[in-house]
Amino acid sequence: MTSISNIKKQTSKIKIILLVILFYIVLQLLMSAQIINPYWQQIICYAGVMTISALGLNLIYGFTGQFSLGHAAFFGIGAYTSAFIIKSANFSNPLLLIIGLIAGCILAGIIALLIGLPILRLRSDYLAIATLGFGIIVKVLFDNADAVFPVLGGSRGMVGIPQLTTFTWVLVIVILAVLILRNLINSAPGRALVSVREDEIASEAVGVNTTKYKTLGFVIGSMFAGIAGALYAHLYAFLHPQNFDFLKSIDVLLIVVLGGMASISGTLIAAVVWVLILEGLRVVLPEAVLDWRLVIYPLLLILIMIFKPTGIFGGKEFKFLHYGDKNE
C-alpha cells in the first residue's frame, strides 16, 4: 500500500520536474529566437520577481496572519543593496549576481529582524499602521540616500546598474522560493506559524513561543522580498524611490489576497496573471482608455471579495505543493 503510493509520488515528482525543464527550454528557445521580444522577456522576468515577493508576503500575511504594509520597503532594501554592491564592484558576469542577491536577501532579513522584534507585539490594525510607517521611513531614506552614498542617486533615481538578471536566474529563484515555502509550511515550525494565525492565545497555551514564530515568518518573508528586489534592480537597471512606496506594497497585498491567503498555488497564478494582464492591456487597450487598466484590478478585488472572499485558490494547493498526509 505504502510502496504503491510512494511510487506514485515519485512519478508525479519526476513529471513535475520534467514539466518545469520543458517550460524552461521552450521559453528560452522562444526568447533566443526573438519570438518573445525583449520587452516581453522583461515582463516575464518581472512576473517572476513579483511572484517571489508575493510568496514572501503570503508567508507573513497568509500563513502567519501578520498584516504588513511595508513589504515594498524590504523589496527596495534588497534592490538598492544589490545595485550598490554590483555597481560599485562593476561586475558584468551574470553569475556574480549571486553576490548581490545574497546581500540583498540578508540585509532585508536583518532589518526585518530589528524592526520585527518591537512591532510584532502589535496586533492587526496597529501592526499594519506600524509597518506602513516603516515603509514611509524607508522611502524617505531612499529619497535622500544620495547625501551619504551619491551612487544611490536619491530622488533622481539610480542609473547604470548592470543588467544581470536573466530568465534563468528568475526561474531558479522562483523554484527555490516555492520549495522553501512548501517545505517550511509542512513542518513543525510551519505549523507553529499557522497556529499563530489561527489563534494566538491557544497557540501560546499549547507551548508555542508566538513572538519567536511571528518574527521568524516576518524575517523569512522579508528575505523573499529582498531577493526579489535584487533581481528587480538588475532587470530594469534603473531604481527610483517611487518604485518602493507603499502603493507597491498594496500591489503585492493584492496579489496575495486575489490568489488566496495561505495558498502558494494562488500566489503563483495571481502574480503571473497580474503582471501579464497589466502589461498585456497596455498593448490591447486603445490609448484613450489606457489608464483604466488600473481600475480593472481594484474592481476585480472587490468582486472576488464579494463572491469568493478566500481568494481564487483560498487554502487550496496544486497537488505537488502539498504532500504527506492529506486524506491518505
Binding site: 513542518s187 513543525a188 515550525p189 505549523r191 507553529a192 497556529s195 497557540s203 499549547v206 508555542v208 523569512i220
Partner: peptide, 11 residues
C-alpha cells in the same frame, strides 16, 4: 501543533 516544542529540529 501541541507536539511542537518537542519537535527539536530547526528551520
Amino acid at each position: 501543533i501541541a507536539y511542537h516544542y518537542k519537535t527539536d529540529y530547526g528551520v
